[in-house]
Every structure is written in C-alpha cells, then in structure tokens.
C-alpha cells in the first residue's frame, strides 16, 4: 500500500506544538521545554527528538545535512536522511557550509557555522542532574531553585577518583548564567563551539520529550573548578592519517596486527573536503595516503 504523507511527515498540529516549544526554548536558553514527543518510524533513542525538530523546521528551500558522530554515511544518519528526503524532497548535502539545517548526533561540525544555519542536536539524556537524581519531579525543582550542587558534586567525585574530570562527552554547561544544561554527548572538544555560536542551536530529546536551545551569541560555560579548569581532549602532535589535519577532533584507530595507534578526522566531510582540496592541488590519490 502506498501512503502519501503530509510534507515533512507530520500533520500540521504536531508541527505547531513543536514550533511553540522551540520558540519558548529559545526565549529561555538552556531550559528544557516539555513537548508531546510523537511516535516516529524510528525507535525512540535513535534521534527522534532531533528528527522531530528538523521536520517541524524544514521547508522546500532548505538544504539538509545529517551526521552521526561526525559521519555523513553511518546507518543512523543515512536512515534519517532517507526519511527526510522521502517526505520533503529537499536537497541533501554533505558540505557543512552548504546546509541550512544540520542535524547531528554527538558532534558539532569542524567547519564554523554561520548565521543562516540551524544546528539540531539529538539528545539521549537531556537532564544534566539525572545521574545524581533519578526523579524528574525533583530535578525540575532543583532547576527552579538554581540548585546545581549535584552536577558540581559529580565532577568533584570524578576528580577525587581519577585526578581529573572524567566526562568523556556530555560535559555539563551553564547557559546564560542560569540553567545547567546537558550539551548532548558531544566531546568536550566541541563544548567551546557552543558559546557565542553564530548559528541557532536546538536540542531535541524524543524519548525524554524535551526541547531546549542555545540562541546565537549566548554565553555557554563548561562547568569547572578554579584549580581544575575545563580541558578539551588533546590531539597535540597528532595529525589525520588521511588528510593531515591537525587541531581537529580525531578518532584513534588501533592496528590489530601491529598494535600501533593512528588518527583520523572524526568529521568525515571536513576530512574529505581537505583531501579533495589537496588532491586538486597535488593530483594525489587517497589510497596512497592510508
């Protein structure tokens, strides 16, 4: 049976509700606005929050880019792109600079975003206090009372146990000096990109039914102590084995035979762009570089 869906899958009532939540989220930076998360044709926890935001934002003139942990071609990104394409017919791209809406799982692209773009981040656990307080009833009150001792204690305990803050990703941030927010599981490397971003950043958690936002040019500070400052992952003296990039977030790849570690860009479209540029200049071949 062939079903013809409404533009962007949703009925207009669903879009309207998500749009109202998005406007409130922008007006209260970092605050989690509840919304009636819809059933989607992908499972909750697989990017439905981001997808619902994207579908309520998208129009015929948009150019969409979807990435999953830096990759344009992994299963999650490809399936979400297919759904968007089938129900909207909009143009897709892998070039960060060409996209008007970028939906991303766990990365902020390496190419700086501009004022015409919207970044939609998929969020599994939007509540930064969830690890210390399982009750939603209570965490809402902790936010109301500006009581973030739980988040600070979590970082303090990490320092006590491991000698440093050990948040691999999702390091909590303070938005506009008021709300502590989970920035979604982006690496610490991406946290500084949140502050005073030129693009609007919207975050959607489908399973947890929350939408929140970081408006452009908004102060976002990663939580840290005076004597234990916030540090991003270090890739000092490391370069991408494919394109030779430095000072970007890289994946560590261990050769099973030799046990040697090598590194390559996590953001595949950035890596490809850099490689193409250098290949154009030098007539190089990718197979020679790996």
């Amino acid at each position: 049976m062939k079903i013809s869906y409404n533009f962007a899958f949703f009925d207009e009532g669903s879009k309207r509700e998500i749009r109202r939540a998005a406007l409130k989220a922008v007006a209260i930076p970092g605050y989690q606005v509840p919304f009636a998360s819809r059933e989607m044709p992908i499972a909750r926890g697989w990017g439905t929050g981001g997808l619902q935001l994207t579908l309520s934002l998208i129009g015929k003139d948009d150019v969409i880019k979807v990435i999953d942990q830096g990759s344009d071609e992994s299963v999650n990104a490809v399936n979400i792109k297919k759904l968007i394409k089938k129900t909207t017919g909009v143009e897709q791209t892998e070039k960060t600079s060409k996209a008007s809406i970028i939906q991303s799982r766990h990365r902020i692209p390496e190419v700086p975003l501009n004022e015409e773009q919207i970044l939609v981040l998929q969020v599994p656990i939007p509540e930064p206090l969830r690890l210390v307080e399982p009750s939603e009833y209570k965490t809402k009150r902790l936010h109301a009372e500006n009581d973030y001792s739980g988040a600070w204690l979590m970082l303090f305990e990490q320092i006590m146990k491991y000698g440093s803050m050990s948040t691999g990703a999702d390091h909590p941030v303070l938005v506009y000096g008021r709300y502590v927010m989970a920035p979604s599981p982006i690496p610490r490397f991406d946290n500084p990109k949140l502050t005073c971003s030129k693009a609007l950043i919207l975050l959607g958690a489908g399973r947890e039914k929350k939408i929140y936002a970081v408006p452009p040019y908004t102060e976002v500070v990663s939580l840290a102590f005076d004597d234990y400052p916030f540090r991003v992952e270090s890739f000092e003296n490391k370069k991408c084995r494919i394109c030779g990039a430095t000072e970007v977030f890289m994946d560590e790849i261990i050769d099973e035979k030799t046990g040697m570690a090598s590194y390559q860009c996590n953001d595949t479209s950035y890596c490809l762009k850099k490689l193409n540029n250098s290949a154009d200049n030098q007539g190089g071949d990718i197979s020679e570089r790996i």
């Binding site: 207009e12 406007l23 922008v26 007006a27 015929k60 408006p215 040019y217």
Partner: peptide
C-alpha cells in the same frame, strides 16, 4: 498555503526570536 507559507513564516519568527 497552510503548510509551506506557515513554515516560511515560522522560520522567520524563530530567526527573529533567536536574534532579538
């Protein structure tokens, strides 16, 4: 057009709300 015109208008309102 209740789908496309409203979507375009919404994006402009969202843009203005994001950038007072």
């Amino acid at each position: 057009d209740y789908v496309h015109d409203i979507q375009k208008s919404f994006r402009k309102v969202l843009d203005s709300m994001s950038r007072p």
